[in-house]
Simulated assay, not measured.
Amino acid sequence: MAGQWDIFCAVVDNYGDIGVTLRLARQLVAEQGVAVRLWVDDLRSLQPLCPATSLTEPQQWLEGVEVRAWTVEATADVVPGEVVIEAFACELPATFIAAMAAQPRPPLWLNLEYLSAEDWVAGCHALPSPQPSGLRKFFFFPGFTEGTGGLLREGDLLACRDALQADVAARTAFLERLGVTLQAGARLISLFAYENTGLGEWLEAMAGGEEAVQLLVPQGRIQAQLQDWLGVAAMQPGQVWQRGCLQVQLLSFMEQGDYDRLLWCCDFNAVRGEDSFVRAQWAARPLLWHIYQQAEDAHWDKLEAFLGLYVEGLSEPAALALLGLWRAWNAGQGMGPAWQVLQPHWLELAEHARQWSARKAAYPDLATALAQFYRNSLSCAA
């Protein structure tokens, strides 16, 4: 499918917005055969995820994607592509919208929404919204159920995951490249989270447990609290600390492919936001989600909506243990008891995570769904 697509990303904070749009742009180029211009208003947030990014070049090509520094001036003389995606309700420049309206065949205008498991999502997915410009904008919702836009998933992702998880030598070599030496018999856990007052209690529970745990922590917002618990003034990637049965190691921030592989290697993944949340589900390992906090506690509705889907098929004791852990983590308290309650259900939760991944993979992925929606729009316009 040839053509030019424009994706606009306004970086709010963290790496979720740019992480999702970068993955989507790469997949559209590689698998759908379209040319993609990714407009980013903060190249500094892109660089950690894609180290080849130049902070000074307003136009550059990264892994097949044309990346443009998003300024009003840069978009002024650009002919819009056949599809224009504004990611997560970012606002397009008025001049660009006018250029869209001036095209002989106006572009398909999509607002790619945040991921949610709430019931209303399927009913709102793909609905049009008439705009003052005379154009129509469609709401496109990623999701976990039929009737939504699906989840980001590259065509070879699960095969690559399975190959790595089945190859002990390859996993060991990858972790050694990250500076990690595996402890025999230790449970391997990754931790990527926002600041969380429940961290200390969880660390104490792991340190005082009966099983050896290796905790791998990519650099991020949780680092300051981790330093406080360890009682150290600073942490450098590669450093290792031992407290009881818990070994803690700080890792450098890594590009997206390596982060995926880290998740595949671990036995349990604590993740945050949207991008790492989805990637942890494709890892087919038990996970713990730290949802982005919203005003008036609106995030709790989203958390409970996902949990309602995710626990389906679990035994009641395992479901209650998982619910207790996720709620404790997001409330920032009660992690010690919740972690202990979870332990007897480890094997069931591991099998459930693999089954969940397989069920979600039965739906079309997000990039494929977007491409099909575009093809359908051409058929309707013909």
Results as ranks from 00 to 15, higher is better:
residue 367 A to T: 04
residue 349 L to T: 06
residue 347 L to V: 15
residue 356 W to K: 01
residue 355 Q to M: 11
residue 342 L to Q: 03
residue 348 E to V: 10
residue 340 Q to T: 08
residue 356 W to L: 11
residue 341 V to S: 13
residue 349 L to S: 07
residue 337 P to H: 04
residue 345 H to G: 02
residue 370 L to W: 05
residue 357 S to D: 14
residue 342 L to W: 06
residue 353 A to I: 02
residue 360 K to P: 04
residue 371 A to G: 14
residue 370 L to V: 13
residue 364 P to I: 04
residue 366 L to K: 10
residue 338 A to I: 06
residue 364 P to E: 01
residue 366 L to F: 07
residue 339 W to K: 00
residue 367 A to R: 01
residue 346 W to I: 03
residue 365 D to V: 08
residue 362 A to R: 01
residue 370 L to M: 14
residue 343 Q to Y: 10
residue 341 V to K: 12
residue 354 R to G: 10
residue 358 A to Y: 07
residue 344 P to I: 03
residue 360 K to W: 10
residue 371 A to Y: 07
residue 344 P to R: 00
residue 342 L to E: 06
residue 357 S to F: 07
residue 373 F to R: 11
residue 347 L to N: 15
residue 358 A to W: 00
residue 349 L to Y: 02
residue 344 P to E: 11
residue 352 H to W: 04
residue 343 Q to T: 10
residue 365 D to N: 11
residue 355 Q to T: 14
residue 374 Y to Q: 10
residue 373 F to Y: 13
residue 364 P to S: 07
residue 349 L to G: 05
residue 359 R to W: 06
residue 360 K to C: 14
residue 361 A to N: 03
residue 342 L to H: 10
residue 365 D to R: 09
residue 367 A to V: 03
residue 366 L to Q: 03
residue 362 A to Y: 09
residue 337 P to W: 01
residue 370 L to F: 11
residue 372 Q to S: 13
residue 371 A to E: 08
residue 361 A to W: 03
residue 367 A to Y: 01
residue 346 W to A: 02
residue 358 A to D: 07
residue 356 W to S: 02
residue 337 P to F: 01
residue 354 R to V: 13
residue 344 P to T: 04
residue 339 W to P: 00
residue 344 P to H: 02
residue 355 Q to C: 11
residue 369 A to W: 05
residue 339 W to D: 02
residue 349 L to F: 09
residue 358 A to V: 05
residue 361 A to K: 00
residue 373 F to I: 09
residue 357 S to V: 08
residue 355 Q to Y: 08
residue 348 E to D: 03
residue 344 P to N: 01
residue 356 W to N: 04
residue 352 H to K: 12
residue 373 F to A: 13
residue 351 E to Y: 15
residue 369 A to C: 14
residue 351 E to L: 15
residue 373 F to Q: 07
residue 373 F to N: 06
residue 351 E to I: 13
residue 358 A to I: 00
residue 345 H to M: 11
residue 339 W to N: 01
residue 359 R to I: 00
residue 350 A to G: 15
residue 367 A to P: 03
residue 366 L to V: 08
residue 342 L to Y: 05
residue 360 K to T: 15
residue 353 A to V: 09
residue 371 A to C: 14
residue 366 L to W: 07
residue 359 R to T: 02
residue 360 K to V: 14
residue 363 Y to H: 12
residue 369 A to E: 10
residue 373 F to P: 12
residue 366 L to N: 00
residue 346 W to P: 00
residue 355 Q to G: 06
residue 350 A to E: 15
residue 340 Q to M: 06
residue 354 R to I: 11
residue 353 A to F: 03
residue 356 W to E: 01
residue 359 R to M: 03
residue 345 H to I: 05
residue 357 S to P: 07
residue 363 Y to Q: 09
